[in-house]
Design a binder for these strands. Structure first.
Lengths: 352, 352
DNA sequence: TTGTATGCGTTATCAG
DNA sequence: CTGATAACGCATACAA
C-alpha cells in the first residue's frame, strides 16, 4: 500500500519546517559574488580557480552551511557518489564484516553505500541490481551470490562492477576471490597432522562455488596423504547452524566411525559442536572440530574453534578500493590475502 | 507539442554505454499519446485518469520497461522513497536482525533503506544524520545509540523520526521501547527460582539506558526475593564477548563465591562461558548462565544459552511500519512485544 | 579563468 | 479529467 503523502503544494512555507534549511549553490554564489558555475567548479575541483574567489566561496559555504543536494547532483552530473552493495543477508555475520570494510573505505572517499539483500536467490539478486540501477549508483559491489556470470558481465557494460567469491574477467569488472581450495586443504591437513584418518566433511550449499572448492581442498589433502575419499563421511549442509547439528545426528545415527569433523563454515561447526555435546561427545577429546571463515565468535565458542581465517573485513576494504580505482579509470590491483589456519582449542590428537 | 530538439550539448557518447537504456517518462507519454503530466499522475495515483489513457500508459510503460528515476523524482517532488536507518554497527548480530525486519517492511511499501553506522558515538551519529539528511531521505529510523533526546526532537521537526531503545514523546517522533527492566527481572527470577542466591550480573556499557534498566530489573528481583544487593557481584562489561570473559576472570581471581551469572547480553554471556570453561567450571553444573537478547546463535552455543527474547526482527518491522504510518500522516500504534524468557540448557539448580 | 545558458527527468501549478 | 509550463539544484558545453 503505497501511502500517498499529500505532497503539499510548492508554497515556500511548506517546503521545510526549518525555514532556511535549504541552502543552494546559487545562494553561495550570490554571497561570494561569483557565478554558480564557479562554485560548482570549486566544489568539484573541475577547473582551476583563482585563489581569491576560492576563498570567498569557501567562506560562503561555511557561513551558509551549504551541503550539495546529491539528487540534483546526480540528475545533472550523472553520478551519485553512492555505490550499490549487493549482499546476501543484511544480518549475515560473515558478510557483515565485509560491509563494515566497504563502509570504511568508501567513507574515506566521500562515497556512501547502498545495501540490498539478495538472499542467495538469483532472481531476487537480479531485482536488487535493478533497484540499484534505478537509484543510479555509480558502481556495484556484488558479494558472492548466485547471479550468473553473464548477468554480471552485462551489468559491467553499464557501470563498474566489483565481485567477490568468483574469478571473472571482463571489461569494467574486477573480481576478488578467496582461495577456498587452499583453505579447505589447510583445514584438512591440520586434522591429518594431528593423526586423524576418518575425517567428516560437512558441505556448504550445493552448487556454491566456495563450498565446492572447500570440498575439493578436503579431497586433495586426503588423497595426498594416501587416504581414500569416503563419500560416507561427506554430509550435506547448507551453511547454517541447524544443518551442522543435523549432520552430526545423521552421522551418529548411521554409526559412522570418525574422529574429526571439518565443517565448511563456522556456523555449521557450531551446529556440529552442539550435536556432539547432545550426544555426550566432547570436543576435542572425543572428536576434533574445525570450521571455516573464522568469524569473530569462533574465538568465543566453547571450546574456541579452530578455523580458516578469511578476513571478510579486509575483503570488503579491497572490494571498495577496487571500486574506487575502477571509478577513477584505473585498473584495480587488490589481492585477497591467502587463507590462514587459526589454531584454537577445538582440535586434538586422534585417539587411535 | 514539445518537439524534442536534440540538444547539441552533451554528446550522447558520454552519457551511458548502453545507448537506449535510459527510458524517460516523456518517452512513455509520447508512446501512449498523452502528456507527461498524465503519465506522472497515473504512476503516482495523484489524480483520477480515464481508464482509456491509463491502459495506454500502462502498456507503454511495460513495453519500454520504464523505471522512474528516483533522483529526478526527489528533485521535483521532494520525496526520495528512501528511509535513513541509523544503526550502530552494520555487522551487529543483534541490530542486523532489526535491519532485516526494516528491509522487509519498507520493501513492501516500495521504500528502500539507507543504512549508516554511528558506532555508539554521539558525534558520529550526528554526522550520520547529516549524511541522511543530505541524501534527502523521507524519514529516519534510529536504532538506539547515544544521540541526546534533544537532537532527535530537533530532527523530528524536519522529518518523521522513529527511534528504538528509548521512550520519547515529540511531534513527528515515535519511539519504540523494549521493557528491559522486566527482561532483567525475568532473567534474575529464573535463577532465583532455581535456588541461586549469589548471582553475578555483568553489566552493559555504562550510561546505556538498556543496560541500566536490565541492572535495575536484576536489583528489584533480588530485593523482592529478600536478597541484599551485593555490589561485589556486579561486574562491568561493555556488551562485547571479551568483557564477559574478563568479568569471569576477575571474579574468579577475587575469590568471589557465586553459583550463577546473568550477563546483560548474549555476547557477554558467551565470553563468560568461555571464562568458566577455561577455569574448569562447567555450565550449568558448576555455574548457571543466562544471557539477554536471544540472538540466533544462543540456540547453538554449548550448552545452549537461556536468554530473554527481544525479537529484534519484529522491532525492525515495527519501526518500519511506524515510519510508514508517520509518513502517511497517521499516528503509529505499534507495541514492542513483552520480554519472554527462553529456557535452554545453561541454567540448572543451585548447588548448596 | 569566469560567466551564461541549458538540460538532467519528474512533479506541481494552473489554466482549460 | 487533461495539457502546457515552470520549478527542483546542480553540472557542463560554450562563449567570453
Amino acid at each position: 500500500m503505497k501511502t500517498n503523502v499529500k505532497p503539499a503544494t510548492r508554497s515556500p512555507s511548506t517546503k521545510t519546517a526549518s525555514s532556511s534549511q535549504v541552502v543552494t549553490l546559487d545562494m553561495v554564489a550570490r554571497m561570494a559574488g561569483v557565478s554558480p558555475s564557479t562554485v560548482s567548479r570549486i566544489l568539484n575541483g573541475t577547473a582551476v580557480v583563482s585563489d581569491l574567489k576560492r576563498e570567498a566561496v569557501d567562506k560562503a559555504v561555511a557561513a551558509l552551511g551549504f551541503v550539495p543536494n546529491p539528487m540534483a547532483r546526480a540528475l545533472a552530473g550523472g553520478r551519485t557518489l553512492s555505490i550499490g552493495v549487493l549482499t546476501q543477508a543484511i544480518d549475515s555475520p560473515f558478510y557483515g564484516l565485509s560491509l563494515r570494510g566497504i563502509e570504511h573505505e568508501l567513507d574515506r572517499a566521500g562515497y556512501s553505500a547502498l545495501y540490498v539483500s539478495g538472499h542467495w536467490d538469483a532472481q531476487e539478486e537480479a531485482k536488487c541490481i535493478e533497484v540499484l540501477r534505478s537509484r543510479r549508483v555509480d558502481g556495484i559491489i556484488v558479494l558472492t551470490g548466485r547471479l550468473p556470470d553473464k548477468a554480471l558481465r552485462e551489468c559491467a557494460k553499464t557501470m563498474p562492477v566489483v565481485v567477490t567469491g568468483r574469478t571473472l574477467k571482463a571489461p569494467g569488472l574486477f573480481s576478488l576471490n578467496f582461495d577456498n581450495f587452499e583453505g579447505g586443504r589447510l583445514a584438512t591437513q591440520r586434522l591429518l597432522d594431528l593423526g586423524h584418518r576418518r575425517i567428516v566433511f560437512i558441505t556448504g550449499v550445493a552448487n556454491h562455488a566456495d563450498a565446492n572448492e572447500r570440498l575439493r581442498g578436503y579431497r586433495v589433502a586426503l588423497e595426498s596423504a594416501g587416504i581414500a575419499y569416503d563419500p560416507d563421511l561427506v554430509v550435506k549442509g547448507d551453511f547454517h547452524e541447524s544443518s551442522g547439528l543435523a549432520a552430526v545426528n545423521q552421522l551418529l545415527a548411521s554409526k559412522q566411525k570418525f574422529t574429526a569433523i571439518f565443517a565448511a563454515n563456522d556456523q555449521m561447526a557450531m551446529g556440529a559442536a552442539l550435536g556432539l555435546y547432545r550426544n555426550g561427545l566432547a570436543v576435542p577429546r572425543d572428536v576434533s572440530l574445525i570450521g571455516f571463515d573464522d568469524l569473530p565468535m569462533a574465538m568465543y565458542t566453547v571450546p574456541p574453534l579452530s578455523s580458516i581465517h578469511e578476513s571478510a573485513y579486509e575483503q570488503g576494504c579491497l572490494a571498495a578500493s577496487a571500486m574506487l580505482q575502477l571509478l577513477a579509470g584505473q585498473q584495480p590491483d587488490g589481492q585477497v590475502p591467502a587463507p590462514r589456519l587459526v589454531v584454537r582449542e577445538s582440535c586434538g590428537p586422534a585417539i587411535i
